[in-house]
Amino acid sequence: MSPQHGSQPIQHQFNPYSDNGGTLLGIAGEDFAILASDTRQSVDYSINTRLSHKIKVISPPVTKEMKLESTDIVGTKNSVLFGTNGFSADGDALTKAFEENWKWYVHDQNSNVETGFEFLNENNEEKESFMSMQSAARNVQHLLYGKRFFPYYVHTILAGLDEEGKGCVYSFDPVGSYEREQCRVGGAGASLIMPFLDNQVNFKNQYIPGTNSTERRKIEYLSLDECLKLVKDAFTSVTERHITVGDGLEIFIIDKNGVRSEYHALKKD
């Protein structure tokens, strides 16, 4: 029976997703972490904008003293660098949801003890408490898995400092599987950049010269400058070969002094 005659209504399903391209990259160093992304947002073959922000710095208030030390600080060392890549509407929604959770968590942690119960705070500590990276990561898992059957179509990467002050990167699949890693790329350029990072960050397939490929090159932490070079190389390379990556590169660096950001132009073609 032809579908036009109404006996069998034609199923026209609304597609609630789109692919907005782009690439997201996180590297953890010894006492710092980097989260970087390109700033292009596209759909099909159209560039929506050359300056969109896929990374949000979720930070406690930046104090005047911190600003004095360096003017370009955009977050404290207790910040969570939150990046999403994929379907941008879901990315924005997830970022907003996490931010909300983060704010309430920090608020609850720091809210004063009820009058008459001060003895509970034995040492009378005034220390401010923040959300640790591992707690942030677990919370993101819950947010993602909460929509297991109508997923947020995004690859999520968090970067920050762990409770020992070491750099850390957490990466998530769309439904909340996650892992702490030294480095991770998400999004359109992931397949191009990931092997490069295996090679240059974790020294995969590198052996000590003269040992006839019997002794692996030992893994060691890279310096911040080395990491930034890798990030820029990775993005210029993937810009060359992937159509949805380009326009600009936004890099966030978190260390004991706080968060600062860099912007570099990428090719606009």
């Binding site: 397949s191 092997p195 490069f196």
Partner: peptide
Amino acid sequence: SDQLFGMCEAL
């Protein structure tokens, strides 16, 4: 080939 493109373009 995607992975090779990424490696070659960078190295």
